[in-house]
Amino acid sequence: MTARGRVLLFGAGAVVVAVFFGLSCGELPRFGATAHPYGDRAVAASLAHRTANVVSSVNFDVRAFDTLGEESILFATVLGATLLLRLARDEQVRPAPAEGVLPTTRLLGIVLLPLALVVGVYIVAHGQLSPGGGFQGGVVLATALHLGYVAADYRVLERVRPLAVLDVADSAAAAAFTVMGLAGLAAGGAFLKNVLPLGTFNQITSGGTVPLFNAAVGIEVASGVIVLLAHFLEQAVEMSGPPEGGGSAEEEH
């Protein structure tokens, strides 16, 4: 296709999208309005299931199927990265050297690491009550662990990061989401149905299945992100590339 043809094709597509986008924007509720048709219904559905955090209720109850898709995307991403960043035939792993850090950096890491881990668990566990949830808390947990790398060195990070366990935890948590959905199908007649007792509003045990889905996503995201970062770190820190001119698999990307 010529450059002119490409521009024409893009122009035609852009005009169509612009027209329909403009038309549909006219139908949207006004920016910052107090009433919103979807918001009102979501809040009502959330209160009916005694979930204080409406966003969690939408994510893990009303539209849990969307979240299943999202966590499957993350799982597939981690799987893909694991596959692509595997040790190629012409690459070698060199153990990372021990490194010294400033005492102040080490102190900061020692103080912050447990604090960040607790914050991560808190955000996952209180997803049904306050802003946060499995995804946010999971990423906090995963990045918190890497304070070990910042405050010490790569060897310490390797010791606090049991990759084999995390691989299994990632898959098990991803599968647990579907299994809990199937349990809802068996017990309540609909996939991902909120079948558990709903508990008392604004208590940590409220929301029925929402805390369980949150926990599953939290474990999956935390272990998935750690595994993902582990492969990137392994490539950047530990691996020695092929000799110059040797065509490795990555060079083609």
Binding site: R155, L163, E234
Partner: peptide, 15 residues
């Protein structure tokens, strides 16, 4: 280049 000693990642072989 690394110092060649130290503990390997226990999973590196399986990956």
């Amino acid at each position: 280049s690394g110092d060649g000693s130290g503990d390997d990642d226990p999973d590196a072989g399986g990956r």
